[in-house]
Design a protein around this nucleic acid. Structure first.
Length: 305
DNA sequence: AGTTCCTCCTGGTTGC
DNA sequence: TGCAACCAGGAGGAAC
């Protein structure tokens, strides 16, 4: 499940082949991967043909390839199961190959940028770039204008996140997954960061103290940096990098997917506490009930009246 | 207006 | 064994 670290691994891998490459004729094997692209396959194919690509950029889980001439970009979102693979022409088609973009790389070699996506939650779309004043004027696609700075962005401001978080009337994990508050976090890194900060996913946001938020944001940054160092988190055959290599962070997960296994932090204290899986929005959260205790019921507000 | 929740998808796994 | 139900979840937008 690609989140920020996996998207960044893809961006870096793609940079070598896409930066300054010249696109040829886009082949659309499944138009559903272009659902969000205005004008569909024809418009995107037309705009890409012969276009020179700039270095791939990213915010949160959104990736984009700016076109060197003009203010257009091809936005790429990996969704649940998307991969960008760089192959040599003639390499066997992958089972869920949806898009193929032949390019001439900067070194003159022929390559194909391939979009493989089993579940088709991801896609490519053509979009216009606009300056974002809140991010030092860097250009961002209009369809990502509402996406907040991610925890690895140089201008990311944890104190500003706290101010917005504490104003919400929601619960902590819901807020963490809201890409307009902090971007790049999905179910895996949400559970890992909450574990790292010893916070319960159902903690009311209005009860977050400044120190709680700062500790949580530090935990998010820490887990994302560690995941990035080892190529992200891969499960089964859902590869991460553009050459099909898996990341190794799955073995370092502390909470996600560890139902019934010992909490490592509690074990280090000599206590046997097991990770539990609790329902969350038709999905699941993973946490240690001992070091991430459920928040106490809010006291009746009688004194306020 | 802020927050919650349904829907889009496929294929591997589980259950009867 | 076969088939159906279930599960994974990012993000837009409908619903409340």
């Amino acid at each position: 499940m690609p989140e920020l670290p996996e998207a960044e691994v893809v961006r870096r891998g793609l940079a070598r082949w896409a930066t300054d490459a010249v696109a040829a004729e886009l082949e659309v094997l499944d138009p559903r991967s272009l659902r969000r692209s205005p004008g569909g396959a024809d418009a995107l194919r037309e705009r890409l043909r012969g276009a020179r690509l700039a270095e791939p950029a990213r915010r949160g889980k959104f990736l984009w390839l700016a076109l060197a001439e003009g203010d257009d970009a091809v936005v790429v979102h990996l969704g649940m199961s998307g991969q960008i693979l760089v192959d040599e022409p003639g390499a066997a088609d992958q089972r869920h190959l949806r898009l193929r973009l032949p390019v001439t790389a900067a070194d003159g070699s022929a390559r194909e940028l391939r979009f493989v996506d089993q579940r088709i939650f991801g896609g490519w779309w053509l979009d216009a770039l606009r300056p974002d004043d809140a991010a030092g004027g860097e250009r961002i696609p209009t369809t990502a204008a509402h996406i907040a700075l991610d925890p690895l962005h140089p201008l990311f401001d944890p104190a500003a996140v706290h101010a917005r978080l504490a104003r919400r009337r929601s619960t902590l994990k819901r807020a963490l997954l809201d890409q307009s508050l902090v971007s790049g976090i999905g179910n895996i890194y949400a559970d890992e960061a909450l574990w790292g900060a010893r916070l319960h996913p159902e903690r009311p946001t209005e009860r977050m103290r400044r120190a709680d938020t700062l500790r949580l944001m530090a935990a998010v940054q820490d887990v994302m940096r560690r995941a990035l160092e080892v190529g992200g988190t891969s499960f089964d055959a859902l590869y991460v990098n553009v050459d099909g290599r898996s990341g190794y962070f799955a073995r370092s997960l502390a909470a996600y997917g560890r139902t019934g296994q010992p909490c490592r932090r509690c074990a280090a204290e000599g206590v046997d506490s097991r990770i539990v899986r609790v329902p969350f929005m038709n999905r699941a959260s993973h946490l240690c009930p001992r070091c991430q205790p459920r928040p106490r019921r809010r006291r009746a507000a009688a004194a306020d009246a």
